[in-house]
Design a protein around this nucleic acid. Structure first.
Lengths: 329, 329
DNA sequence: ATGAAAGCGCTAACAT
DNA sequence: ATGTTAGCGCTTTCAT
């Protein structure tokens, strides 16, 4: 087997507890002996066993991160930041993927429970009640969900949505459609609530839509039927699907209709036209979630979102029905 | 604290070792007692401590996965598949990110060593020698690198590159440029070796290039100067950067020059024109690497790659210099 | 400042 | 088939 604390004790002529102390409470050991122990440890290539340490202390120095789908471009920046945050404090990060399955989510939390000091749960599919129950097994931080008594990191989509819709208004749009997401989505609800009272605009809410490109494609009919010249889509994927379908029908973006997405996933930066979108602070969210977890402080942190204007938004065409009611054109 | 094996023993009137056996070697315990123990365990909400188990058995049931950059679109499908493979065998997966830093890579391996049963090392930046040394601390599987005596999963870029170049030839191209990657890249070397002997083609190797969009952009001059009508880029990012720069100069893709990437990252599916590329079997690689690790069998597995023809390749323009020397046009 | 001893939760011989 | 016992590598009182 590997070299243990006992080998180091033998080599440096002290008791194991002294070796233990040199690593976990260096200030409690005489500088001279400390040097001697460290030298012996280095010589033998000793590294404390995190497993054994975990067994005695009850703290594993591991964290868990659970997302719906690792390959969904929304998550990797969050995962990366969470990992970096964990590592900078000498924590290791388990990453797992539920494949959008609430049952897998629950199992994962339970098996993680014994092996981590906390878990970051992103956009959970589990019910609030189930999460409340699981909270007794392991500390949580939830991302993009509000649950009574559970620490949370929220991304302020509402604010971004307001900005987006205002951007459309400034461009001269009057009739704008909001493509809502799947029923029960927290971010979807936020978007609706935030835009409902937008001044000077004629809003229509179209949905629910699947949060995918196909969801966006299927929404094209409704968008056209609504006579909207501006669209705020549930997310970038939906926006991209919509743009695709619109292009297929000869409707120009942004010439005929302007499209705004949400998330700022990397793929949206390469579409033609490049997608205007509400950037979600995913990296900050990952970092913050880990922060919160390690401070063991409850509370909710809300992160700002930013409208990134690229090429998929422009003034509406001069002769649209909605523009006709507007003498300004 | 949580409920332990001892609580279950008490509740079901058997000795702890019997409880232990019902979980780790059920066939060694009487069906009746097993049921009783299981009932008690369930009642109390007992879950074996993986940490304690690891300490006695020496096997943690954890795996580590180390990549250069989690947010690089090349990796998430690999991570996802590795995670799924691990989980299906009741292993948990640590994921870490080296930020392209070999030193971080080494530290990560060392801290993982005590806490995992093996690590998957993707496209390592560490020297072969360093990796060989580290191999004594923990079992490895390396992805996309060939190291004496280390189990490896390789993606056969050479084969894909041959296909790509043949595709260009069939289209009628004669003068093609290969954009090599950073010096020392295994995949880059494979691409060169595989294409060098391509029949009926006039190959130029341009590089080294940074494996990024900027790398592709900077290569535009050389490509044009070489008079190439077809380009095989080191990866999709390079291909995308090149297409961008070409477009900025009024050179049409694929009208004037055809471009082929490598990797099939998700962003390449949304460019205009959509990128023709050599698809790397990243998901299969992740799954296979975990397989190999858990079987503890050395050996090298080579995975096939596939040319995905989309819109960035077409016949060369009729009047290019290279076509002029070819009476066939 | 250091040593001695107990124990974290579990498994694995060995006994019965 | 089940109980007994001795650790796994470390931390943590409690002594000294």
């Amino acid at each position: 087997m590997a070299v243990t604390i006992r080998d180091v004790a033998g080599a440096s002529g002290v008791h194991v507890s002294t070796v233990s102390r040199t690593f976990s409470a260096p200030h409690l050991v005489n500088a001279a002996t400390r040097t001697r122990v460290l030298a012996a440890a280095d010589e033998l290539g000793y590294r404390p066993s995190r497993v054994a340490r975990a067994l005695t202390t009850g703290r594993t120095h591991n964290l868990g991160l659970i997302v719906a789908d690792i390959a969904n471009p929304f998550f990797p920046p969050l995962i990366k930041a969470a990992q970096a945050g964990a590592r900078s404090r000498d924590y290791h990060l388990f990453v797992a993927d539920t494949d959008e399955n609430p049952q897998v989510e629950e199992e994962l939390i339970q098996t993680f429970a014994k092996q981590v000091d906390g878990v970051v749960l992103c956009s959970p599919r589990l019910s609030n009640k189930a999460i409340g129950r699981l909270r007794e097994d392991v500390p949580f931080v939830v991302v993009n969900r509000r649950i009574e008594g559970v620490a949370a990191v929220l991304m302020d989509v509402g604010q971004g949505a307001r900005q987006a819709v205002e951007h459309l208004r400034e461009l001269g749009h009057r009739r704008v459609a909001v493509l809502t997401g799947p029923a029960g989505s927290w971010t979807g609800a936020e978007m609706c609530a935030a835009t409902a009272a937008a001044p000077g605009l004629d809003l229509t809410y179209l949905g629910p839509n699947a949060p995918t490109e196909n969801g966006g494609r299927s929404a094209a009919d409704a968008v056209l039927a609504a006579g909207a010249t501006g669209v705020l889509a549930y997310n970038d994927l939906v926006a991209m699907g919509l743009m695709d379908e619109l292009a297929a029908r000869g409707v120009r973006v942004p010439g005929d209709v302007s499209v705004i997405g949400v998330d700022d996933i990397v793929t949206g930066r390469h579409t033609r036209p490049r997608l205007t979108t509400i950037a979600m602070p995913t990296a900050a969210a990952g970092r913050t979630a880990v922060d919160l977890l390690l401070r063991e402080q409850a509370g909710t942190i809300t992160l700002a979102t930013t409208l990134v204007v690229r090429e998929s938004t422009a003034p509406p065409p001069p002769h649209t029905p909605s523009a006709a009611t507007d003498p300004a054109s």
